[in-house]
Design a protein around this nucleic acid. Sequence first.
DNA 1: TACTTTTGCTTAAACGATTAAGCAAATATA
DNA 2: TATATTTGCTTAATCGTTTAAGCAAAAGTA
Lengths: 346, 346
Amino acid sequence: MNKKRTTIKDIANVLDISPAAVSKAMHDDSRISAKTKKAVKRVAKELNYQPNHLASALRSGKSHLVGVIVPRTNSNFFSSVIENMEGVLNKAGYNIIITQSNESFEKECKNIDTLLFTQVDGIIASMANETVDLSHYEKIKSKGIPLILFDRGENDLNVDYIGIDDYDSSHMIIEHLISKGCKRIAHIGGFRRTRIFNNRIRGFIDAIHKHNLPHDDDLIVESSLTLEDGRIKMQELLALDNPPDAVYVASDYAALGALQVLNEHHIKVPQEICLVGFGNEPFTSLVSPTITTVKQHSKQIGKIAAETFIKRIKAKNWKPKLEKNILKSELIIRSSSDRDLPIKST
Amino acid sequence: MNKKRTTIKDIANVLDISPAAVSKAMHDDSRISAKTKKAVKRVAKELNYQPNHLASALRSGKSHLVGVIVPRTNSNFFSSVIENMEGVLNKAGYNIIITQSNESFEKECKNIDTLLFTQVDGIIASMANETVDLSHYEKIKSKGIPLILFDRGENDLNVDYIGIDDYDSSHMIIEHLISKGCKRIAHIGGFRRTRIFNNRIRGFIDAIHKHNLPHDDDLIVESSLTLEDGRIKMQELLALDNPPDAVYVASDYAALGALQVLNEHHIKVPQEICLVGFGNEPFTSLVSPTITTVKQHSKQIGKIAAETFIKRIKAKNWKPKLEKNILKSELIIRSSSDRDLPIKST
DNA sequence: TACTTTTGCTTAAACGATTAAGCAAATATA
DNA sequence: TATATTTGCTTAATCGTTTAAGCAAAAGTA
């Protein structure tokens, strides 16, 4: 019969107490007797009471919603980060709203507006490739809600950041390739304007110098790191007078494109050219030969990002503050760079 | 100075009119003069007014939030569906909350509770593999908010559904394989309890009979359709006294597992055994040989699901109603079944 | 006994928008 | 000119919860 949902008023009526007492009983207020609390909770269950989230959010000013912005959800890295973030946040009573920027600056701005409009209590984001203007992120900060960046961050924003050590990762890769006898190593990197890609390039150059390998500008190319661009850049490298004997690609997708080109040219990988990708996307272990790559600890990144958010929200007066959380990455050595192993498909 | 956000009251004070007039002006009410409307909008812009979504949602009973439940976001199919759904819904003034069930029934139940708690105006979902008990979905229906299913649906729920014709897709595949000279076709299918997989199995059997091919129970196996299980089921098929000359796998992931096993056994694909997957995941065009598969029109499915939701929300008294929207799928023929073509890597 | 403190509630005002009802002034109609 | 209608607003209630303030009764303290 009763079409409308149960409210605290209904519970109050049944027990002949005030709605305020019911609200406090549900929140285990110390000023409510154990007896009343028990009765309230019993009746709440009987009437199938579901708190009205909008009302409490309006009154308390807290929506218990966290906005998440990622370039795309269909990469294994981001979907894993989100999954682990969600686990931690749900336990703390927060739900998440996931949005995708599709690497577009415009879409990212829209997403931020949408999230602020929806009154999220904070935003956890990884920036789009295109993003250079940071004014939209400043808008989040000026609202006084926590902003936490992961993977694709930006020092200038001066907020919490969780990611891996890209500079160090490049060193690991170069040292691995050197141990396999490579002497002329090329790097297909991302755009320098994106911090993580710049760090990988810097790490690459410094490692090359450290080990007294030739530094040749032709061997460093910037790329959008899509599969297609990986193909193009690999072809360019092969066309050099003095082509490389190893290629370190800053993304698995572009590395796959490079591998296709190498296969098409019947260049033996890893015997003639070694190949290393970045990101540990699932397909790297599925293609032939399997691709050596860098694991970014997506689970940890997701968890730490969520925990950082909770820490910030608990501090009553949140002030934007830079706190970096840099995880060590892990090199996954597979056939494409392992000259001691025969090529195998798993 | 002013820390608090602008409300309609602030605008009202500036113009010395009532907050009600401001609200109506913002909504272009016919009983407000053009002059007042203009002034209100000007001041709103000046004060950087952002409507409080929670307040209007509370009052109007509409959150303008749509809940989305998918098994996982990291498959290309689901992320593409979501992207296109979002486009349509955003234009109509709705935002979406994405949740993942990870194929778990328990997680799916939790997601539904979360979404209902967050007071979404409707739910668009694709069911987890594990789900057989539909009581949680009935709960959504009983709340009187629109429920729309896509891809993984269930007739018993009697709600709108958008998907492809799985039965017909099986026919397309079988006819293609027959045209390539296959005579003994096996099917690694999903669990029969999931409607789409059952339809693919039925389509497979009927197509086999229609073309007078032998119906051998050993050639039909049910699988969880993960990569690993695809490997196991392929090994079982190879171990038969009379192994198949073609395998139709109901998922690209499992098809990839099957392909790995075939490659490891040095069985030539497609010369000795033809292979067909399902879903058009990006890696199907990246592995060697490339895998023939079925395109599910994720963009269309996303758009239609969103449009159906909007249609339902506009009808004032929503009643659960079965309305199926079945799209025709498309067979993408690649090397793994194309005996006329040489094996190539793209 | 007389006072203070604690307990366990109630009252009532928010939170920021929407909206039904009402009302004076302007305009139209007879 | 008298009446009806339309225009353009205001008033006040409402959505369901939270919370500051208040108050009587019970318990503790001197």
